[in-house]
Structure formats: structure tokens, C-alpha cells
Amino acid sequence: MADPIIQIKDMNKWFGDFQVLKDINLDVEANKKIVVCGPSGSGKSTLIRCINRLEEHQKGSIVVDGTELSEQTKNIEQIRAEVGMVFQQFNLFPHLSILDNCTLAPIWVKKLPKKEAEELALKQLKQVQIDDQAYKYPGQLSGGQQQRCAIARALCMEPKIMLFDEPTSALDPEMIKEVLDAMVNLAKAGMTMIVVTHEMGFAKEVADEVIFMDEGMIVEKAETKEFFANPKSDRTKLFLSQIL
């Protein structure tokens, strides 16, 4: 069996004096889909932002695809290029068209020729069904379309791992489904995914494992069926009773 693609050992993180993450241990194997849930302020977003080093951890180790993330990591850009990320607020580049949003990083980071990058981008946009919007600007699209574009943009880098930071939280209820559908398709295609979300339906459908976090700690980590059928800790039970 190959090494897990993400290995987190005894990881701790502080914001000033406040400890956000406490002794996080987590291994993610390739092609696994992990859903992270928990109340707000429990450190879920911080955890996945640590995986591509948008946040720095102070103690412990994170190894992504064989490279340890630390102060000394020189090729952090290379790691980030392999780890795609989708944000709650979409974070599309408003001054570029949808197509340019998708081709910018492949052209300048991966040095793809422009034509190839555009073909790739159109293919990915077609996957999420917004290829007809390719020449519009982000401001002209609905929230759901913008988020799907953000997914396509991340996929254009052909990442090994995809991180989703509450991708549906900023959307109108009727747009949530179109984004979740895109994510389900991606999961079925075999992508390694770590998803922070409150969409338990999505978790039940695609997740291999569910992690429940509270107060910066991993409270429970279990197979999806096990997690929903019989949660072990009281905190998890309380959370599930409130959310379902």
C-alpha cells in the first residue's frame, strides 16, 4: 500500500495566544473523499488552509505528496499547484473573463502554450456546464455559476488533491444543487477531496470518511455509514441532532 498523500502529525496552530488547532493527526490516502464538519469556529477551514500553507502551522508536521511543509519549503508554489482549492467567496479574478480566469495559472505557472490552456479550460468549463459563459466576466454570472467556474479554474491546474472550503455556504439555496452536482461528478472521477461543508446529504452520498471537529480538535473520525448510524461522542450526537 502506498503512503497516504496527506500526512498530518501532531499539528498545532495558534493565532496569537489563541490555539486554533490542537494535536491534529490525519492521514488521507489518494482518491479518498473526506468530509469535515463541525460548528463554526471549530478550526475546519484553518485545517484545510494549512494543507496548502495559506496558513502556517507552528508545531507538528504536514507532508503533502512526499514534501514536508515548513519554513524551509522552497517550492511551496509547486505544492500549491498540485493542490486545488475552492473558496466560500469564490474569489474569482473580477478583472479577467471566465476563460482568462481558467487559463491564467496554467499559462504562467505550468507554462502551457496559450492554445492548449484554452482547450483545457473549455473542457473543464464544459464539465461544470458553463462553457457558454466563457467570455463573460465574473460579475455577470450568478453565484452558482461563479462557484462552478472556481471549481473549473482549480481543475485546470490538474491538481492531485482538491480542497473545498464551505463551497456552498455563500449560495442561494437553489444554486447549491448545481455546485454539489459538479462536486459529485468530480468525486466519481476519482479525485482526492477534502470538503468542509454542512451539506450532510453530500457527505452521505460521496464521502468515504467523515471528520467531526470541535474547539480545534478532531472529536470523531469514522466511515460515513458508521458516523451517521452510530456516532460515538456526545458532542457529535448533539451536532447531528441539530443539523439533520
Binding site: 473558496f87 474569482l92 479574478f93 478583472h95 491564467l104 491546474m157
Partner: peptide, 30 residues
């Protein structure tokens, strides 16, 4: 500029100069 723009550019693997030239400065100068 919202912090998300920096995050998004970094998460796509852009370094300091690429991020500023293609994402941050065009918006900030505008």
C-alpha cells in the same frame, strides 16, 4: 482588495511577482 484574491492566486501556485503582476496590481491600479 479582499484577502481572498491573494488566497486564490496563491492557491493556484503563483509566486509573489506573478500574483502581483496578473492578479493584484491590475485590480489595485484600476
Amino acid at each position: 482588495l479582499p484577502r481572498g484574491q491573494y488566497d486564490a492566486a496563491k492557491s493556484l501556485g503563483m509566486g509573489y511577482w506573478k500574483m502581483h503582476i496578473f492578479v493584484i496590481l491590475p485590480q489595485a491600479l484600476k
